[in-house]
Design a protein around this nucleic acid. Structure first.
Lengths: 189, 189
DNA sequence: ACCTGAACACCGTTCAAGT
DNA sequence: ACCTGAACACCGTTCAAGT
């Protein structure tokens, strides 16, 4: 039932958005009372934490896949960025659960923190590989990763929140541009 | 009273966070019924839209001030980025109202949209000035601005959501690093 | 024109009670 | 061990009624 609750929450999120995930709706869809959930999770936040954890796992796998299947060089770096944005645009509500502050006290869920760190670590690993291949500046990889993550997260959030629709922006083109500018800089032509 | 409601909402947001802004609490703090608000705003979302509009106005003024008082060159560009992050860190809940999807149907509030566009336009104007001074690539200034905005927005959101606290990140140092990397690129040393 | 008080349809959560 | 049903303390919103 625990797994069923998570799956049902995910389905509701995908179809009707995160705001529609109520203990009543999730319970009713599973033919169970609205308080049955408390036998498996501490509270609603714990359920959403599990949903978020699942999201970070999927995201990490998507990043690894993009990086590995594009040669682990510049092409892989770009593919990884595009995969990140694609995940966010394909699962906007799920992404919001992961990053929108919907999970109270994020740090109180060690499995969620671990999975989130794992996805971040994939980016760090890629940057270390690029540095060792002489393709990227030998800055602190952690700070470098924070920088890149902030960029793609910013694009994802603005896109999801509809802030890039007036006028309409080609998100993929923006992502490609951003990654290219990160790579070569914007100081001079 | 309309202005008083906005001011009270802002005060509550600063002190107890956006989640604590309820029609009951705002009304009670002003010695008025919880439904009095409906004489001045269509619904709660309209009140928050006004709060967000005030935020974009303050943000724009902070950006203009930073840009103007640092020579409208590379130093001004960096100062503008730092001013953006500083605004977000100083008023995290206010920033969340502006960007966290708390205002339903953002585009239905023309004054809010105008103010948000105004803040964005300040960045576009700065980039055009940099381009004309030969200090920045002559890319489409709008796309360039979307790129930069995404970056600082990403840093701001990750910082506000506490995602840069395990391990703790020096946000100002990260911002300086990011702006420097945007300026000179990360392809080679 | 502006405000109130009661009512309505929702929420998450607690808890005694059932099997 | 697992679930239920009623109850509690909250929400935003509507509406007839008051001044």
């Amino acid at each position: 039932l625990r797994q069923a609750l998570v799956q049902q929450a995910l389905r509701t999120i995908q179809r009707d958005g995160a705001a529609s995930v109520t203990l009543r709706s999730v319970g009713e869809a599973l033919g169970v009372s609205r308080t049955a959930l408390y036998r498996h999770f501490g509270d609603k936040s714990a359920l959403l934490a599990e949903v978020a954890r699942e999201g970070f796992r999927t995201l990490r796998l998507a990043l690894v896949e993009a990086w590995d299947s594009h040669g682990r060089g510049r092409a892989g770096f770009e593919a990884q960025g595009l995969a990140y944005i694609q995940f966010a645009l394909t699962h906007p509500s799920h992404y919001r659960v992961m990053f929108g502050g919907m999970v109270e006290a994020f740090e109180r869920y060690p499995e969620l923190s671990r999975e989130a760190t794992g996805a971040f670590q994939q980016l760090v690993d890629a940057l270390v590989a690029l540095q060792e291949a002489g393709l990227a500046r030998r800055d602190d990889p952690f700070q470098q990763a924070c920088f890149i993550w902030s960029l793609v997260h910013g694009i994802a959030m603005l896109a999801i929140d509809g802030r890039l629709r007036h006028p309409p922006v080609d998100i993929e083109a923006l992502t490609r541009y951003a990654i290219n500018r990160v790579w070569t800089g914007i100081d001079r032509e």
